[in-house]
Design a protein around this nucleic acid. Structure first.
Length: 233
DNA sequence: CCCTGATTCGC
DNA sequence: GCGAATCAGG
C-alpha cells in the first residue's frame, strides 16, 4: 500500500482544505507533499481553490500545445490522418473531457477565512537579532572585543532532527517561516550585547534598554566603544 | 527565486 | 488510487 488514506487522514484533509489552508501547508501538517494533497483533494472532489494559473482548458486550442507532460508518451501519433476534406465533427483526438461544473471559482464570497500569509498559529522561534556585527560600525572607535564577538557568531546549528513521523493533530509547522519572523515584534530596542557563546543554549543578548541611538545599554556601550588612541601619531 | 494550485500519467 | 513531475500564474 502506498499511502493509507485513512478516514481520519481524509477528514483532516477536508477540514484543513475547508479552512482554506494552502495545499503546501496542509501537506506539512499531514506530513505529505502538496502534490498528494492536491491529488487527493481532486479525487475527493473537494472544492477547487482559486488557482493562480489561468483557467485555461476552455481556452482555444489554436496556438496551444496540447501537450504537457505527455512529452514522452506523446510522439505525435495523433492519427492526423484526418480524412481529406472531412470536417470531422469531433474535435481533435486530444483530451476533451471536461466537467460541466463551474470551474472558475473566483471569490467564494465567504467572509470567513482569509488565510493569507499571516496565518501563523505557531509560535515563532524568536531568533534574536544578529550580534553586534554591523552595530558598532560608524563609531569612530570600536572595541576589538565586540568585533571578535561578532565574528565568532557562528550560524546556529539549526537543529533539524527530521520531522516526527506522526504529527499529531495540528502539529505546528516546523518549517521555515518565510520572512515573517524577521519583522516580528519591534516593540522596543534592547541591548544587543552578546552574552555567552553563540550556539550554546546559554547564549543570549543583554536585553537591557540601550542608549539612545546605540545598540547597547550604557554598561555595554562603555565596553563596545572604547576610544582608540588617536592613531595619527 | 519564492509562492500558489492544476494536470498528466507511470506506477 | 496515488502522487511525482510538470506546468503555469503571481
Amino acid at each position: 500500500m502506498a499511502m493509507e488514506w485513512t478516514d481520519e487522514l481524509i477528514a483532516r484533509l477536508k477540514e484543513l482544505w475547508e479552512q482554506g489552508l494552502s495545499t503546501a501547508e496542509i501537506g506539512r501538517q499531514l506530513a505529505i507533499t502538496k502534490n498528494a494533497v492536491v491529488g487527493k483533494a481532486h479525487r475527493l472532489g473537494l472544492p477547487p481553490r482559486p488557482s493562480p494559473i489561468r483557467n485555461k482548458t476552455a481556452v482555444e486550442g489554436a496556438a496551444k500545445p496540447a501537450r504537457s507532460r505527455a512529452k514522452k508518451a506523446e510522439a505525435a501519433p495523433v492519427t492526423a490522418e484526418t480524412e481529406v476534406g472531412t470536417p470531422a465533427p469531433s474535435a481533435q483526438p486530444v483530451e476533451k473531457k471536461k466537467a460541466p461544473a463551474a470551474k472558475t471559482v473566483k471569490a467564494p464570497a465567504e467572509g470567513a477565512a482569509k488565510p493569507t500569509k499571516s496565518k501563523v498559529k505557531a509560535d515563532k522561534p524568536a531568533s534574536e537579532e544578529k550580534p553586534a556585527k554591523a552595530a558598532a560600525l560608524k563609531e569612530d572607535t570600536v572595541s576589538p572585543v565586540a568585533v571578535e564577538e561578532a565574528k565568532e557568531a557562528e550560524p546556529a546549528p539549526a537543529p533539524r532532527p527530521a520531522a516526527p513521523p506522526i504529527p499529531q493533530r495540528k502539529v505546528a509547522p516546523p518549517r521555515r517561516v518565510r520572512g515573517a519572523v524577521e519583522r516580528a515584534s519591534r516593540q522596543g530596542p534592547t541591548c544587543q550585547w552578546p552574552i555567552g557563546d553563540p550556539g550554546t543554549p546559554e547564549f543570549h543578548f543583554c536585553g537591557a534598554t540601550p542608549l539612545s541611538g546605540k545598540p547597547y545599554c550604557a554598561e555595554h556601550a562603555a565596553i563596545a566603544y572604547v576610544k582608540i588612541r588617536d592613531r595619527r601619531h
